[in-house]
Amino acid sequence: MDMWIKVLYDMSANMILPTTAAFAIAAIGLNVHFGFTGLLNMGQAGFMLIGAYGFSVATIAGLPFWAATLVTIAAGTIFALLLGIPTLKLRGDYLAIVTIAAAEIVRMIGRASVLNSVTGGSNGLPGETYRNTFSALSPFPDGKTAFLWFDFDNTGVNGWFIRIVAWSLVVIFAVLVWLLMRSPWGRVIKGIREDEDAVRSLGKNVFAFKMQALIIGGVLGAIGGMFYVLPTSVQPDALGRNMTFLIWTAMLLGGAATIWGPVLGSALFFALRIFIQGTVDILIPDAILNTQQTEQFSWIMVGVALMLLVIFRPQGILGDKKELNFNV
């Protein structure tokens, strides 16, 4: 029985992890891309990694927190411009090809031994090297605080401070997206998702709107990446393709083109994965599936879940089938 309680505790603890919040921010960004604008960004993890490098490298170079945050935002913007300029005038799958490739390239360059002194190569950058400027902002006194069944440090690596900041950002970004989407700007964006040519015939510069959407989603991805590495470390391989696919699955699970879908999807997704992994661990003896294979099994389930979601319930939990359009 204890094992099950541990699974439940792990599930709830995972839902409020700062990395889950970071993941949710990146998912909100992807939702701006895909859910609202119809852009097939298959490299959101690349935006995260760019943001993570932007923040950590800038901080290590001696920049204060806010300047490093600006670097993160600039990195996301430049990356979006770089990928958007050649592809946004073309059919949707070109963006998919270029983003999936570019995300991989960022990872490869990040781990290249030539850049060891900057990015730490394949070992990445340990969190202590760039975390302090953020921790220093904490208004909380030292010590621990218990809330419900959670008991964390106030300001520590995975403490309340970063949890509160990260989840507040999730709410702020969701509200900003809501503000955008109810405006005429959002109307054009949704029109583009439906039919670019129609919107073009009404005198809107479709390319510029798509580019703006790509940049916003990309910057959210970069900020997500920054908060993903603040409580952990910069590991290029942790922000690879799998991360992109996880974000996609979470976004589709919660409901693309909805405001809270990506957030709900992210929290649920982590809980579900822990649940599947925990259940399989408990119920299936190690002789059949050892822990490593259980992990692989849960990844296979993610892939299958992504396929099934897209085929049978593309609108996810919160979505309205009539609202969601899957045209390229």
């Binding site: 900003l176 405006s183 700007w185 054009v188």
Partner: peptide, 9 residues
């Protein structure tokens, strides 16, 4: 005016 990004907010 609401179609410009910043004004949209």
């Amino acid at each position: 005016r609401g179609e410009s990004f910043l004004a949209a907010f």
